[in-house]
């Protein structure tokens, strides 16, 4: 077993894990944070996306021990870390009607948050490239792209 210290949704946590344990399992089984979904398990679908030091990454190909000393944010942490209000990206996804079954949405939103933190005024092509690693099987992506544009506008305006 190995002791791993990291920041999870703004809080310092310490856990004792096997070095082979994946972050997606740690989040879901130990912390009961079920927003990130284990789906493909190979880093392809994006349903397990979390923020790792502010960048969107796959938690199914991330060992928990790789997060020792790092910062992880899940979908559950966005609102508390935004002063108890919905993050502008969450708000925009709701208003644009970008959510159907919702399964891919935690990953989509976290990918969008990381993307818009680096690119405040993206083109449609850049948005499509940014979310290309997050698969949605029911939305058709059009309203998701609308939501990203709306979120970008709100974030530029300082919402």
């Amino acid at each position: 077993m190995a002791v791993v210290n990291f920041k999870l949704n703004g809080n310092d946590v310490t856990i004792d894990v096997d070095a082979k344990e994946r972050m997606i399992d740690t989040l879901r089984k130990r912390f009961h944070l079920t927003g990130a979904k284990l789906t493909c398990g190979t880093g392809d679908c994006g349903a397990c996306t979390v923020l790792y030091n502010g960048k969107a990454i796959r938690s199914c190909t991330l060992l928990t021990c790789m997060c020792d000393g790092q910062e992880i944010v899940t979908i559950e942490g966005l609102m508390p870390m935004n002063g108890g209000k919905l993050h502008p990206v969450q708000q925009a996804f709701m208003e644009a009607g970008a959510i159907q079954c919702g399964y891919c949405i935690p990953g989509m939103i976290l990918t969008t948050v990381a993307f818009l933190n680096e690119n405040k005024n993206p083109t449609t092509a850049q948005i499509r490239a940014a979310i290309s690693g997050n698969l949605s099987r029911c939305s058709g992506y059009v309203k998701i792209i609308d939501a990203v544009k709306l979120a970008a506008k709100r974030m530029r305006e300082g919402a």
């Binding site: 070095a19 082979k20 994946r22 398990g41 190909t61 060992l63 021990c65």
Partner: peptide, 26 residues
Amino acid sequence: IVNGGTDAVEKINTGKAQPEAVILMT
């Protein structure tokens, strides 16, 4: 050795690799 983890973690998870020591490059 686990570097980015993309291939290595999948190998561990599918049982193709069962290392006693995981060495991180970070």
